[in-house]
Design a protein around this nucleic acid. Sequence first.
DNA 1: TTTTTCTCGATAAAAATTTCTCGATTGGCA
DNA 2: TGCCAATCGAGAAATTTTTATCGAGAAAAA
Lengths: 221, 221
Amino acid sequence: MDFSQGVPEPTLRRLPTYCHFLRRLAQDGADVVSCRQIGDALHLDPTQIRKDLAYAGMAGRPKVGYPVPELLAGVENFLGWNNTQQAILVGAGSLGTALLGYKAMDRNGVRIVAAFDTSPDKTFQAIHQVKVLPMRKLVDLVGRMQIHVGILTVPAESAQTVCDLMVQAGIRAIWNFAPVALKVPDTVIVQNENLFSSLAVLSSRLQSTFQPRTLPEEDPS
Amino acid sequence: MDFSQGVPEPTLRRLPTYCHFLRRLAQDGADVVSCRQIGDALHLDPTQIRKDLAYAGMAGRPKVGYPVPELLAGVENFLGWNNTQQAILVGAGSLGTALLGYKAMDRNGVRIVAAFDTSPDKTFQAIHQVKVLPMRKLVDLVGRMQIHVGILTVPAESAQTVCDLMVQAGIRAIWNFAPVALKVPDTVIVQNENLFSSLAVLSSRLQSTFQPRTLPEEDPS
DNA sequence: TTTTTCTCGATAAAAATTTCTCGATTGGCA
DNA sequence: TGCCAATCGAGAAATTTTTATCGAGAAAAA
Ligand SMILES: NC(=O)c1ccc[n+]([C@@H]2O[C@H](COP(=O)([O-])OP(=O)(O)OC[C@H]3O[C@@H](n4cnc5c(N)ncnc54)[C@H](O)[C@@H]3O)[C@@H](O)[C@H]2O)c1
Ligand SMILES: NC(=O)c1ccc[n+]([C@@H]2O[C@H](COP(=O)([O-])OP(=O)(O)OC[C@H]3O[C@@H](n4cnc5c(N)ncnc54)[C@H](O)[C@@H]3O)[C@@H](O)[C@H]2O)c1
C-alpha cells in the first residue's frame, strides 16, 4: 500500500464510522466480520472498506474476514484514539456546552480538560464537570499541561483573536467551529467544522427532488 | 457546464463558505469581487472558486470580477436559502438545545419550527423560543405543516426508531447527528453529520507531525 | 487611440478516489 | 482428499475532482 502521500482524507473520514460499528459488533460478541457485512450495515462498497482497512494496516483472512477485536484495536490505534489527546475548549456558549457534555469524546481520542470564556457569568463554574476559566489563565495552563489541541466555539468575530492566543500558547491543532477561515502559521493544523456545508448538500438534494435541475431526456418508451 | 451528474458534492460544500464571506463583503459595501480575492481570504485556489461559481450558474466579467450583491443572491438562491425550509428537531438534549439556539440557521436555509422529545422534563417548555412537544404530536404536525426536513439529535440507540417515525410522518430529508447509518426508503435523503470524522482527520494530522508515518529517506547530508 | 494588465471562461492535463476484475487463499463439506 | 464457495489482496480501469493553460474581453493607463 502506498503511504508516501499519507492516508487519503476520505478514508480517514470513514474510519471512525467503522470504529463505531465495530464497537457494537464487539459488544454483541462477534468474533469475525467481513467487509461485506460492514458494507451492508453502513451502505458502503465492500472493496472500499477493504482498501480503507488496508490503509490502516489491517489484514484479513480469506473466507473468514477480520477478527473483530484486533480490527477494532488496530483502527483505534491507527487513529491515535488509545492515547487520548488532552484539549481545551474556548467559548462555553450553546455549542461549547454541548461539546463539553458529549461523553463519547473521551472514547474518540480527545478529552477536554478545561474550558475558557470571557463572560464572568461562566467563569469559575463547572459545566458538565469541566471547569470554565477566564481567558488570562489560558496561556499558562496550555503551556504547563502541554496541551496540543484547542476547540474553538466562540462567535465568528472573536475567532481570529482567540485563535492567535491559542497559537501563542502553543496549541498545535485547532478544531474550529466558527464559520471563518483562520490565519495560522504553517506549523499549526486547522480543522474546520462547517455545519452549513452539510446543510447545503441536504437542501440541494432536497430541492432537486422537487424540481430536478436536469431536464429529462425524451422518454425512450 | 455539465449538469448531467448534478453539482459535485465538494463544490456544494464550499458554496456556503463563499456565501458567508460574500455577506461580510456586502456589509462592508463592496461592489465587486474577484476569485482571486475570495481565494486569498479563504485559502482556496481561484480557479476552483471560478468553477464552483460556474456550477451555481454565476458569471463574472473579465478584469472586473463578480458583482457582490448578484453573486450572493445567486448563490443563496442556488442553495435554496431564500425560501427557507421549515424543519423539526427531535431530541432536545445538549446538542439539540445548541442547534435550537443557533440563530444563523434561519439565514442558511432552515428554520426549526418545533422540537420533540420523550422526556416529560422537556416537553411543553420552550427552548430558545421553540416549543418542545411530546412525540405523539409529531406525525400530525409534520403532516399538517407540510414539513420536509427533520433534524435527528437523539442518542444512537433511538435513532432508527425516531427515523422510522419521521419517514412515516412524511419527512423527506433527515439531518442525522447520531453516529449510525440510518435505514430509509430510497425516496428519503439522509445527510450524516459525523463530528468524529473531522476529529479523525485532525488527530491523524497531528499525530503525523509528531512521528511522520513515512520513514524518512536516508538523510542526504 | 493604443497598449498594458487583470480576470474570466473553456478546455485540457493531472491527481486523487472509487469501482472493477482477477487470481490466490482458506475453511467447510462430501 | 478434493471440490466448492466465500473472501481477501493487488493491480487496472473508470470516475471524480483539482490544477494548469490559453485565448479573449474589458478597464485603466499611456
Ligand atoms: N450553536 C450551534 O449550534 C452552533 C453550531 C455550529 C457552529 N456554531 C458556531 O459556534 C460558535 C459559537 O456559537 P454558539 O451558538 O455557542 O454561541 P454562544 O453565543 O452561545 O457562545 C459563545 C460563547 O463564547 C464566549 N465568547 C465570546 N467572545 C469570546 C472571546 N473573545 N473569548 C472567549 N470567549 C468568548 C461567549 O461568552 C459565549 O459564552 C459560533 O461561531 C457559531 O457560528 C454554533
Ligand atoms: N453533545 C454533542 O456535542 C454531540 C455532538 C455530535 C453528535 N452528538 C450526537 O447527538 C445525539 C444526542 O446527543 P446529546 O449529547 O444531545 O444527548 P442528550 O442525552 O443530551 O440528548 C438526547 C435527547 O434525546 C431525547 N430522547 C431520547 N430518546 C428519545 C426518543 N426515542 N425520542 C425522542 N427523544 C428522545 C432525550 O430525552 C434527550 O433530551 C447523540 O446521538 C450523539 O451521539 C452529540
